[in-house]
Design a protein around this nucleic acid. Structure first.
Lengths: 202, 202, 202, 202
DNA sequence: AATGAATGAGCCTTCATTCAT
DNA sequence: TATGAATGAAGGCTCATTCAT
C-alpha cells in the first residue's frame, strides 16, 4: 500500500468515526457522552480511538466543523439562483419549523450537544467555534433578507435588525424545543408575525 | 426544645444551606459544582448535608424552586399598584438589559447552572422544573402586557402573541449572553423594536 | 468523639498505612509498587488511600522520612556514652556486614526502593531527600571517627577523608549486594583493610 | 541477493538500531524510554523493530552487551603494550574522574539506564547481565593491577583486595554521581588516597 | 442530628505487543 | 521484510453517597 492509499484509509476511518460520533452526539448530547460510548458505537478499541482523536472535545469539535461546512454549502447553493424572496423565506421558515418540531419530539439533533458544549467550554478557541456557528446562521439570514431587499420587499437598512430578530427568535425556540416546551402553534404564530412585517411594507 | 422549635431550627438550617448553595451554583454553574464546594461553603459536614437533601440534584432543584418563588413574588408586587404601563415595560426591559449585560460579562447568575442542569437531566420531573421556569417568565410577561391592555395600549388578543415573542427574544438573548455572543447594541435594537410596536398602535 | 481523638485516629491510621507500605516497599522496591499494591496490602479501598496520601511518591517520601528519624536517633544514642572506639567501629562494621549479607540474600530492605526512587526522581525536593539520607550516613560515620580522634586512634584531619572512603565503600557494597554480587569474604576483606588503617597509626 | 548478503544486511540493520538505541538509552535512561522514542530515533516502523528484537528488554540487553564488548576490547588493547603502570593507573583514574564529573552534570551515559534496568528486573538472566558488567570492571582493574605487580609496584597477593576496593569505590561514586551528590574534591581525595598506597609500598 | 472516614463505580490515558496486509 | 493500525491490560484520579460512631 502506498502512503497515499494508507492516509486515504486513515482519512476514511476518521470520517467513519466522525459519522458514528455524530449519531451518538445527536442522540445523547455532549455532556452524557464519554469515550466509552463512542468506542462502543464505533466498535473500536479503547486505545484505538486515541489514534484519531485525543479527547471527546477534539472529536466533538471536528464533528461540528465538518457539519458546519456542509450546512453552509447547502444554503449558499440555494440562494445562488436568485429565487423569489417570499418563497425562499417561507421555505426557510418551514424548514426551521420542521426542525423545531423534530426537536420538541426528541428527534436526534446535534443542537443539544452544541448548546451543552457551548455552556461548559469557555476557552478562546471554544468561543470562536460558537461564534462561527452564530455567524454562519446570521450570514445565512442576512443573505436571505438581502435577497428580499434586492426584490424591494424591505429596506436595506432594516436587514440587520430583522436578521437579528429572527436569529434570536430561532435561538429562543431552539431552547424551548430542546426542553420540550415548544408547540406548533407557537412556531406558527411567531413566524407568521415575522412574515407579516414584509407584507406591511408593501 | 419542643418538636415545633426543632423543626423550625431544621427549616432555618435548610434555608441557610439553600442560600449558600445558590451563591455557589450562581458562581460556578451546575456541572462545576461538587459536594465538596457546597460543604465547604456551608460549613457543614459531608454526611450532614444529606440530612437535609437527598442528593445534589435535589438540592439544586430546591435552589431553583426557592428562587422562582421569590422572583415571582417580586413582580406580582410591582404590578399590584397598577402603575403606568409604559414605565413598567421600560423598567422591565431595562432590568433584563442589565441582567443580560451582566451575564455577558460573566457576572454570577443561576441561569448558566439552570441550563447546564436542564441539558443533562431529562426525567419527567426535570422537564417539569424547566417548564415551571418558562411558565413563570411567560406569566410575568403576560401580566405586564395585560396591564397594557387594560390601559388601552394594546389589544387583548395581542397579549399572548407579544408575550411569547418577548419571551423567545429573551430566551435567545440569554443563550447568546451565556456563550459570550451578545452585545449591548443588539439588546437595545431588539427592545426598542419591541417597544415601538405599542407606539404604532396608538 | 472530640477533634483531638479524631485526629488521633487519623494519625494512627496514617501510621498503620505507612507501616504496611514500608513492608511493601521493602519487599518490592519502589518502581514495582503502585497504589493498587498498597491498597491490597492495607485492605483499604481505592479511594480511601487518597484520604491520606496523594500519590505513591508522597507515601514513599513519608516512609523514608519516618524511618530516617528513627535511624538517626538510634545512632546518636549509642555514641552518647563515649564507648571504646575500636569496639564501636567493629560493631558498626559488623552491623553493616549483617545488613549487606541480608541484602545479598534478598532480605527485604528499603534500600532498593530508595535507590530506585533516587535514580528516577530529580526534582529539587527529591534531591534534598537523598542528600538528607547521605548526610545522615556521613554524619554518623564522622561522629564515630571523631570519637576515634578523641581517643587518639586517628588524626583529626583524617576524619573527613576516611569517613568518605567508608561511605563510598558501603555505597558500593550496597549496590553489589542489591544485585546479588557481594560475598561475605569481600565484605570481610574490605572492612579488615579499613580497620587496619587505625592499627597502623598506633 | 544471496542469503549471505541478506543476513549481512540484517546484521547491519540490527547494529544500526543498537547504535541509535544506545544514544536514546544514554540520554533518557531506561524507564523513560518507550518504543515510540526508539522507533522515531531509528526511523523504523512500530512493527519493524520486532523483526530484530523481541521486546524492549531484549533490545536493552543487547545494547548493554554490545557496549561491554567494546569497552573490554579498548582496555585490553591498551594493556597489551605493557606500558608504565603509574601512567596507566593515573590515566585510568583520570578517565573515571572525567566520566564521574560528566555523570554529575547529567551528561548522557548508559549507567543510569543500566541501574534502572537492574533495579526493576530480577530474573536470573537479568542478574547475570549485571554480574557480567561487574565482572568486566573487576577484570579490567585486575589486569591493570597485575601490570603493576609485574612491574613490582605491588605484591601479587594484594591485587585482588585492591581491585575490589577500587571497584567498590567507583561503584559508590557512580551512585553518588547519578543522584547528584558527588563533588570533584571527593573524587580527587579518594583517588589520591588510592594511588598513595602504591607509593608507600616502594 | 452530626460527623468524616470509607467506599467503589466511573472515566481517563498510555504503551508494549500483535496482526492483517 | 516492512508497515502502522489495533488491541487491551494497567494504572491513575475523582467524587457522590453510605455508614459506623
Amino acid at each position: 500500500m502506498t502512503t497515499a492509499e494508507l492516509s486515504k484509509t486513515r482519512q476514511a476511518k476518521k470520517e467513519a468515526i466522525l459519522k458514528t460520533a455524530t449519531q451518538v452526539f445527536s442522540e445523547e448530547g455532549f455532556l452524557n457522552v464519554n469515550m466509552q460510548r463512542i468506542i462502543n458505537a464505533c466498535g473500536i478499541s479503547r486505545g484505538g480511538i486515541y489514534l484519531y482523536f485525543q479527547s471527546v472535545d477534539e472529536l466533538f469539535i471536528e464533528v461540528i466543523r465538518s457539519r458546519s461546512v456542509r450546512q453552509f454549502d447547502l444554503i449558499r447553493q440555494e440562494l445562488k439562483d436568485k429565487p423569489d424572496f417570499d418563497k425562499v423565506l417561507t421555505d426557510y421558515l418551514t424548514d426551521h419549523k420542521k426542525r423545531l418540531l423534530g426537536l420538541s419530539q426528541g428527534k436526534p439533533s446535534l443542537l443539544r450537544a452544541m448548546y451543552e458544549y457551548s455552556f461548559t467550554h469557555n476557552t478562546e478557541a471554544d468561543r470562536r467555534l460558537k461564534q462561527k456557528q452564530v455567524n454562519a446562521t446570521r450570514a445565512t439570514v442576512q443573505s436571505l433578507l438581502n435577497l428580499g431587499a434586492e426584490q424591494g420587499k424591505l429596506a436595506s437598512d432594516q436587514v440587520r435588525l430583522l436578521a437579528e430578530e429572527l436569529m434570536l427568535l430561532i435561538e429562543g425556540m431552539n431552547v424551548l424545543a430542546l426542553t420540550g416546551e415548544l408547540q406548533e402553534i407557537q412556531i406558527d404564530r411567531q413566524f407568521q408575525q415575522f412574515e407579516r412585517q414584509f407584507d406591511l411594507i408593501n
